[in-house]
Design a protein around this nucleic acid. Structure first.
Length: 907
RNA sequence: GGGCGGUUAGCUCAGUUGGCUAGAGCGCCUCGUUGACGUCGAGGAGGUCACAGGUUCGACUCCUGUACCGCCCACCA
């Protein structure tokens, strides 16, 4: 008999098990031509530090999918990796340096980069450890990092292609500028914060204009009015002199629909260089764009005497001057507006015009079709825009988004998408693959050869002046530019590798809904553009992990913020995994707290003990005996065996279906209920009293362990070893539904026994009979049931805690009187009486009985009305009608018996 | 302003083609040393499925509207 501890202590098994898995090589799939693989690219965690519960969630869900498919015998690849996360990582390192009083500028670019790389190396190894702690069965041999040589090559390749297709361009455009990061930000890297501020109404010649930012108004020179606004129709195109902050300016009236006649005076001035809306108006009307604020946040020469001052700080003085000049009409002191701030550092965003690199999402180019798994519906060489491609991929169902409500969000995002600013003025990242000739020292370049040279590597010689001195563009690319390539750059693209050919497109992209735009959409853009394939077939979006009260978890609130590593140390990775899977629906946020994890730890321990008990009954020789044949041999098989075998087959069907349909919570719940509520609570309990059928016991245990494995890989693998299995569970085949192990009738019979025992237990306790008190039970049943009950006499007595069990055949008259007894009438026709004379007060039983009669009556009346409704009979499925009829009959019979019984008690 | 989601037992949540007297875990109450498990076992209380209409033989489930909570997008000078 194996010596197994009474409780499962996760920490003494997990690391060793993970190591065994790794050493087994099973994390690395074997390419089988002709078999479609199952592939997940991990959403690469940022190389900024540690994993949080969001990562734990994604690891749990993805590991379930990977392990399931691996067990099904499908080559399953899960590629791990990390993202360099340019801005986030640079900020982090800058903060660390600031603690030592050092700035990145003091260090200089090369030294600073060394610091970053040191930090990142550390961080990446921490992340790797944590991924292992979760039990994630990723293929470490294919681990990638967005700054790897290969991936960097992919980045340059895409950049060059896009540039030559005219999709990437360099231009002066309005961008979100973070003055602290000294960098641009993409539109979706800007967050909004509500803020109270002053709102100024200012006289501008004949009109009153409103603004919250008077410091940007120095060069406002046009008055925009709506073309249809009758008040201003005669002014269109007129010029006039207007007294302004630093003297008079010449103002022009321009008609443009952007002006809302209902708002204020219906007229407005514009500041094209510092407002996205105004910039568009200026472009439409070919108006000059004058920068008032520079990249440090200071006022430019255009501000006259205020030049050089910080724009925000100068506001008061500027307002003062306006006031002195009589320009201020009024001030609203309680104006609410949304302040835009940097999503990384919370600094207010300054929209300004700057020379940057953009991806044009509306520019047509010739689509290049993949020759392996091309997107349907678009021809090779067809002219398309990136927007159209992104829309097409999802609209035509090449990509399925789950839950599907996110389709709408996705389309809305695409429709409002503007050109993507991809250059960043930070140091950490892929440097823009663009060079500029600087000429030679002795022979300064006379020809104007300053045009950008774009290429995958530095140019050798300037085609104009022959110089080989080039300066690479100092900017780096948006992090999402490289992570957008993730599904195929990790497989070796731009080379035509075996991996790329076999594993792309990937199967499922599983991630949080919060990065649908940041990342998911960008991957669709990049894959469809660069290789003419979709990056993945299904997008599964999980919700955010929140605190018990629904707040976002934040490290600044340690009392509610849960660290996955702490939980793993305390409850085990299996428990943590379950707590994030069961009871959560896709796309919905999950509230997590410690008791929940503790609950699943209890379940993990239950699994352990279920196996432990089985093992206490199984000898070594039994374990090692092949016994698949004996399973079906009728000689040794009992009713309980047939029942549990049937239930097991049904479970295989259910769990497999749910997993195929991404219903992880449902699948988990089903195995949980089966393991605890059927296998342990009934099958094992009943087996204690009778001759054990070892083949069935072992078969069911192993089958359940297999199905549990994707959810709780550690405890199941540990037990698998105790079962003397040589191979590891991770590589076992997924259970297959076997029709010949379904015993429908026997299963129903067993259910009748279970119901009988439950009824006895419930009667005892409801009447407040002491647990130690042994009782007699008198049971009436049909001939068929009688032999069943006879056969299961032992468990009924034991589990019902009876002294004696009297069995009688039910007579047609049903006239058996058992005086002063508790009674229960089961739907299957079994009648149970427990004489309680001298044990309890019979009056309370009367009360209980009448309550039950009332219940039954109201239920029956609802059935009656339903069945007397012609339309129900006509329209409802016949099976349902039959079922309801049957129910009506049995419940009617039951009611008659209950009423009779109640009458007998009135003595 | 536009869009999306939530509202089911005291708490946290399941409930996917509309068809069982609506389920689970935790908590609560009563009880328990039965050959694995007290990280256990038995039983129980507790819900007009937010509200109001509608469609349907039938609605927690579909439609319309309302209220409250939350999220996303846009951002009115």
């Amino acid at each position: 008999m194996p010596d197994i501890p009474k409780t499962y202590t996760a920490e003494s098994y997990e690391d060793a098990l993970y190591q065994r898995w790794e050493e087994s090589g099973l994390f690395t799939p074997i390419i089988q031509e002709g078999v479609r693989p199952f592939v997940i690219s991990i959403p690469p965690p940022n190389a900024t530090g540690t994993l949080h519960l969001g990562h734990a969630t994604m690891l749990a869900i993805q590991d379930i999918m990977i392990r399931y498919h691996r067990m099904k015998g499908i080559p399953s690849l899960w590629i791990p990796g990390t993202d360099h996360a340019g801005i986030a990582t640079q900020n982090k390192v800058e903060k660390l340096l600031a603690e030592k009083g050092i700035t990145r500028h003091q260090l200089g670019r090369p030294k600073f980069m060394e610091e970053v790389e040191k930090f990142v190396e550390q961080s990446r190894s921490t992340i790797k450890t944590q991924v292992k702690k979760m039990g994630a069965s990723v293929d470490w041999s294919r681990e990638r990092f967005t700054l790897d040589q290969g991936l960097s090559r992919a980045v340059r390749e895409v950049f060059v292609r896009m540039y030559s297709d005219g999709i990437i361009y360099r231009g002066d455009s309005i961008v979100n500028w973070c003055t602290r990061c000294s960098s641009t930000l993409a539109d979706d890297e800007v967050k909004y914060k509500e803020e109270h501020t002053k709102f100024y109404y200012i006289k501008y010649g004949p009109v009153i204009i409103g603004t919250a930012r008077p410091e940007t108004k120095f060069q406002d020179k046009v008055i925009i009015v709506h073309p249809d606004d009758e008040r201003y129709k005669s002014y269109h195109g007129q010029k006039l002199q207007v007294p302004w902050i630093n003297g008079n300016v010449e103002a022009t009236f321009i008609a443009d629909p952007a002006a809302d006649p209902e708002f204020g005076s219906g007229a407005m001035t514009i500041t094209p260089a510092h407002s996205f809306v105004d910039f568009d108006i200026a472009k439409r009307n070919s108006l000059p764009i004058i920068s008032i604020i520079d990249e440090k946040g200071n006022l430019t020469a255009e501000a006259g005497e205020f030049a050089g001052q910080n724009a925000h700080d100068a506001r008061a003085a500027i307002v003062k001057k306006m006031q002195d000049r009589g320009l201020i009409e009024s001030v609203d002191h309680n104006y609410m507006h949304n302040l835009s701030v940097c999503y990384r550092c919370d600094t207010p965003i300054e929209p300004l015009v700057s020379k940057q690199w953009f991806v044009d999402v509306n520019k047509e180019f010739k689509f290049k079709k993949s020759n392996r798994r091309p997107i349907k519906g678009i021809r090779d060489g067809q002219k398309v825009t990136l927007k159209q491609l992104m829309r097409h991929a999802v609209e035509k169902n090449a990509i399925t988004i789950l839950p599907d409500r996110f389709n709408k969000t996705y389309f809305h995002w695409i429709d409002n998408l503007r050109d993507w600013c991809i250059s960043r003025q930070i140091w950490y990242g892929h440097q823009v693959p663009v060079w500029y000739c600087v000429g030679d020292k002795d022979k300064a370049c006379k020809i104007d050869c300053k045009e950008p040279v774009v290429g995958t590597s530095a140019p050798e010689q300037c085609k104009y002046c022959g110089s080989s001195n080039f300066r690479q563009d100092p900017d780096t690319l948006d992090t999402w530019f490289s992570s957008g390539l993730w599904t195929f750059s990790t497989l070796g693209w731009p080379d035509d590798t075996a991996d790329l050919r076999y594993f792309h497109p990937t199967s499922v992209l599983e991630t949080g809904y919060d990065i649908l735009f940041f990342w998911v959409a960008r991957m669709i853009l990049m894959a469809t553009y660069a290789i003419g394939e979709i990056p993945f077939e299904t997008v599964y979006l999980h919700g955010l992990v929140r605190t018990r009260t629904g707040e976002k978890m934040s490290k600044s609130k340690p009392e509610t913020c849960i660290d996955p590593l702490d939980m793993i140390a305390k409850y085990g990775a299996d428990a943590l995994r379950l707590s994030m899977i069961v009871g959560s629906a896709p796309g919905n946020d999950v509230r997590l707290y410690e008791e929940k994890i503790a609950g699943y730890r209890n379940f993990v321990n239950k699994i352990w003990n279920a196996a432990r008990f089985a093992l206490l009954n199984i000898g070594e020789e039994d374990l090692n005996r092949p016994m698949s044949q004996e399973l079906k041999s009728t000689a040794a098989i009992s009713l309980a065996d047939k029942w549990i075998l049937t239930r097991t087959q049904e479970l295989i069907k259910d769990v497999t279906n749910h997993l195929e349909n991404f219903q992880f919570s449902e699948a988990g719940t089903k195995i949980y209920d089966f393991t605890w509520g059927e296998y342990c609570a009934w099958y094992l309990e009943i087996s204690k009293g009778e001759h054990k059928n070892l083949p069935v016991l072992i078969y069911v245990l192993k089958t359940v362990l297999k199905m549990l494995h994707p959810f709780v890989p550690f405890v199941t693998e540990a037990l698998w070893k105790e079962l003397n299995e040589e191979k590891m569970l991770i590589g076992e085949p997924w259970p297959v539904f076997q029709k010949d192990l379904i015993f429908k009738k026997d299963a129903a019979d067993m259910q009748a026994i279970i119901d009988t025992i439950s009824a006895i237990r419930s009667m005892r306790q409801e009447s407040g009979i002491e647990a130690g008190q042994k009782l007699n039970a008198i049971v009436y049943a049909s001939k068929k049931h009688l032999s069943l009950l006879e056969a299961k006499r032992e468990p009924i007595i034991r589990l019902g805690r009876l002294e004696e069990l009297e069995l009688h055949q039910l007579t047609k008259a049903g006239d058996h009187k058992v005086h002063n007894a508790l009674s229960q009438f089961l739907s299957c026709g079994i009648e149970i009486y427990i004489p309680v004379e001298g044990i309890i007060d019979i009056a309370s039983e009367r009360v209980r009985l009448s309550k039950e009669v009332e219940n039954l009556k109201s239920y029956l009346s609802s059935l009656d009305t339903k069945l007397s409704n012609e339309n129900f009979i006509k329209n409802a499925p016949t099976a349902l009608v039959a079922e309801q009829r049957e129910k009506q009959a049995t419940e009617k019979e039951k009611l008659a018996k209950l009423e009779k019984k109640l009458a007998q008690m009135s003595v």
